[in-house]
Design a protein around this nucleic acid. Structure first.
Lengths: 352, 352
DNA sequence: ACACGGTGCTAAAACGAACTAGCAAGCGTC
DNA sequence: GACGCTTGCTAGTTCGTTTTAGCACCGTGT
């Protein structure tokens, strides 16, 4: 509990000027209001000598803006993903001089309300509302009084604010293309049924991935050899589904709806003494860290969580600063799709 | 940009009382200063009707405390771990009415300084300084003016503040015991050399784990059959080290210094057609999610990151509130070891 | 008739900075 | 020597709340 913070008043008294003079000088308006260079220098020197730093709380009260963002996510346990989004957002915010309050609701709407209120009470300049499920949901009320960006949340209709989403449709196309371009035609799906209506999960991602896959297959006159709808995309499920497929004969290729399912597939394939990619090719989605660790490396379409978080924070800050400049202009809006890059590793074998 | 926030002044004027009266009533001191029950009720009713919420920035300015914590970590990329610590801290904070600013430095000390300053400028009530490396480091200056808790940071000497660490020594003992109790005596190490001086990593965790392991082996008249020091604890390294061991004959048991190394070991063992745990037993540390996904499930000593984060935030808030009550009392301090529970799965086979 | 003690509320001073309006001194002009 | 213009700085208000000191009224006792 050492020395207290030094205030502007102390700097002013030490430099023998009025508080207002010190304020003007330190906020860069000195020349504009004709403070002599000599006095300006003196003020700056004493401020530096005393280690003066403006009290952000006071500035926040006076100016009504705090250079602070809120990041609220529903972060289901599963998510290392969430962590990456947060990091991306924090980095982008930091680069533009903003700090961020982070909150997790665990999907609890009451908690979400409380968190949002607590953050608005603290006068955050903007809010990133993130979800790990993409799936459409009701938006909390009151978001219209603070600039907001939706991150990984798909809503029906125009939410009237920017939305950042991964380009799952193109990702589906890319995954299928990786297989088809390698000459593979016997393609099985794990994570979703073979037809659009078979997805059986609330995840919007699943629908779009499937749609992209089917589009490409269709363009080549193909259909999935089988499809395995699954609720929990975890290794044991992948293992089980892969065994079903293998029981019916060795497939040319399997597309897994995420890397954890692919891990289960690897286990099932390798337990039978079959080899990836020589006997069966595998492609997947997410680019979780296991994708690089599996042997052979898993080719997968990456979910760029960090970039999404970064993008959301940047859009939010743009929107805040735009509002400040044009208070009556229209609010920012629009869907921002972040590309999902294919990470090519060794799990696909060219077939002639 | 809907309606503005309603202020205390508006509530007061609407309820036809003075601002100070309204303040007193709403902060629960109404009865204490003898505001009539009738007036109190009127104030509360109008506050509720107008949806009044106190402006936390103003309160922060006036009271000098903001019900806000800072969480600053160096979070190397690797870390899902970091995410769990943050979540634990955020949850604990939220339960006690605090919000948290999260910052990441990536190990950059300049950035750390900036972040800390920015947070102190915002009048945070306390700071959790976290690291992903445990390893001793210089502490930034100026931490003595704000209550601080060190999370997963081991320092030499008394830092004069609480420190939260996982009990790695006991974890080492537990890992070794799991093997020894199963009657296994041919025990190989991956992640560290066989002797205390062979650790070859900056991680304090490695030293303590090794020490715990050696203690137990020694108590049973055993020594490690081999030890493989490794800098990067990743699957490919585990794979390589396991192959070295396997080339020299089939080992009874391997203790891996983390789950990723163990994943590499699984791959090497299974590639030779050997079986876990029938042919070789494996035990590990961390309880990362792959530990549960590997087949067979990996027995591992969990690093309870979430609990550590929670603990740190709780200690910090205790310390803040204690300081507030006894401004001249001694600062909180001490090392708080969080137990690392053993997650028993199927990777150890009893041997007779 | 007058001090005395309660009762019930309020005025005003913080907190730390930003910012508007404007004052005083110096100088030139006619 | 009165007027205006510039230059260089400052007093004072504001943001929204908390908190202390104290005012005004009323009834009671002497």
């Amino acid at each position: 509990m050492a020395r207290k913070r030094v205030t502007l008043a102390q700097v002013a008294s030490e430099a023998e000027v009025a508080v207002s003079t010190a304020s003007l000088v330190l906020s860069g308006r000195g020349t504009e209001v004709r403070i002599s260079e000599k006095v300006q220098e003196r003020v700056r020197a004493t401020a530096a000598r005393l280690g003066y730093r403006p009290n952000a709380v006071s500035v926040g009260l006076r100016k009504g803006s705090t250079s602070t963002l809120a990041f609220v996510s529903d972060s289901v346990a599963s998510s290392r993903l969430a962590g990456e989004m947060i990091k991306g957002a924090i980095e982008a915010a930091r680069d533009r001089g903003y700090m961020v309050f982070v909150g997790e609701t665990g999907g609890n709407l009451t908690l979400e309300r409380q968190l949002l209120d607590a953050m608005v009470d603290r006068q955050v300049d903007g809010i990133v509302l993130a979800s790990m499920l993409t799936h459409g949901r009701e938006l909390p009320t009151g978001l219209d009084s603070t600039p907001t960006v939706l991150l990984n949340i798909a809503v029906d209709g125009d939410p009237g604010m920017p939305v950042v989403l991964p380009d799952e449709l193109q990702a589906g196309r890319d995954a299928a293309s990786a297989l088809v371009d390698a000459g593979l035609t016997d393609i099985h799906l794990i994570g979703s049924g073979p037809r659009p209506e078979d997805v059986r999960t609330i995840s919007a991602a699943a629908h779009l991935r499937l749609q992209g896959i089917l589009e490409v297959l269709d363009a080549h006159g193909l259909t999935p050899s089988s499809g395995h709808a699954i609720n929990q995309w975890l290794p044991p499920e992948g293992f089980r589904a892969a065994n079903e497929i293998l029981d019916a004969g060795t497939p040319q290729a399997i597309v897994c709806f995420n890397d954890r399912l692919a891990m289960g597939v690897y286990q099932a394939v390798q337990a039978r003494g079959l080899r990836i990619p020589e006997d069966v090719s595998v492609v997947s989605f997410d680019d979780a860290s296991i994708a690089a660790w599996l042997r052979p490396g898993l080719t997968t379409v990456a979910l760029p969580h960090r970039i999404m978080g970064k993008r959301a924070a940047e859009l939010l800050i743009d929107s805040i600063e735009h509002d400040r400049a044009h208070p009556d202009g229209p609010a920012a809006t629009g869907v921002h799709l972040v590309p999902m890059p294919v990470r090519v590793r060794e799990s696909i074998r060219a077939h002639d």
